[in-house]
């Protein structure tokens, strides 16, 4: 098993773990963390792929991608946390499930 394959496998495993948590954990914080774990898995795969060109210098492009990905993930995590906090203030709970689907809208203000 090459190093790339190992990274890919571990990354995939992390991705699935995150996916599982996202779906089963009702708490919003858990869900956000789960997404972070999933994204770490994806980055693992990307970093591993950088080795595929062989030689001492790995392919820089995947690294650039991972960096971009981290930026995206960090900002979206921040946004998600802010949103979760706001939901907590509005509803008194930070859990989320089908029961929350309410279809009413009246334009406030």
């Amino acid at each position: 098993m090459s190093q790339t394959d190992l990274y890919t496998l571990v990354g995939s495993a992390l991705f699935v773990i995150g996916l599982y948590a996202l779906m089963t954990r009702p708490h919003l914080l858990h869900k956000v963390l789960a997404l972070n774990i999933s994204s770490s898995g994806v980055f693992f795969v990307l970093v591993g792929i950088a080795r595929r060109v062989g030689g001492p210098v790995p392919d820089p492009l995947p690294h650039a991608m991972v960096l971009t990905g981290i930026v995206v993930t960090v900002s979206s995590t921040a946004f998600a946390l802010a949103l979760a906090k706001r939901i907590y203030t509005e509803t008194g709970t930070a859990a989320l499930d089908a029961a929350d689907v309410d279809v009413g809208e009246s334009l406030g203000g």
Binding site: L22, V32, L35, L83, I87
Partner: peptide, 12 residues
């Protein structure tokens, strides 16, 4: 409230 919850769902 409903909008925030929906947004969260959407985001995830």
């Amino acid at each position: 409230r409903e909008a925030l919850v929906a947004a969260m769902r959407y985001m995830l």
